[in-house]
Design a protein around this nucleic acid. Sequence first.
DNA 1: AGCCTTTGACCAGCG
DNA 2: TCGCTGGTCAAAGGC
Length: 149
Amino acid sequence: MASNSQTTTTGAGGGRGQGDDEEQTPTPPPAPPPETAPSTIGGGGGDGVQLVMPEDGYEWKKYGQKFIKNIQKNRSYFRCRDQRCGAKKKVEWHPHDPGLNLRVVYDGAHHHGSPSSAAGEGGASAAAAANQYDLSTQYFGGAGGPRSQ
DNA sequence: AGCCTTTGACCAGCG
DNA sequence: TCGCTGGTCAAAGGC
């Protein structure tokens, strides 16, 4: 993997500042996930299969991957780089059509700003929006909704 | 030298 | 009570 994901919008991790108290919003309205820079991971070898996951303005660390036979899809487990943040993200995609049926499920809420906000201006707006959504389950891909495929 | 990514194994919960 | 699936943690390798 040469030119893959990693170092996507690594804004030197300066997007913090707030988030002192662990005050969390009760249940704010789910906001749309701001896409900044889509990262392509997975098919770097040359199979032709590339997973294009939309960036949300935050940095995630992959801590596991598994194939869910129940849905016949691969599922990657991401966790927020910030330990202060208990936000988690699950990305599901078809082993043959990672870019067609990509599903991103957000779990948890961010207690800090997004690194993109401090990194670039493009992510500023995204960060603001990203900071809005807390416990929202976003579904990407042609699903168009909580459809069972 | 440090950090991140990937794979495997183990544990827990539910049916 | 047993089996299966999902989820998480740990270790190793590569950049």
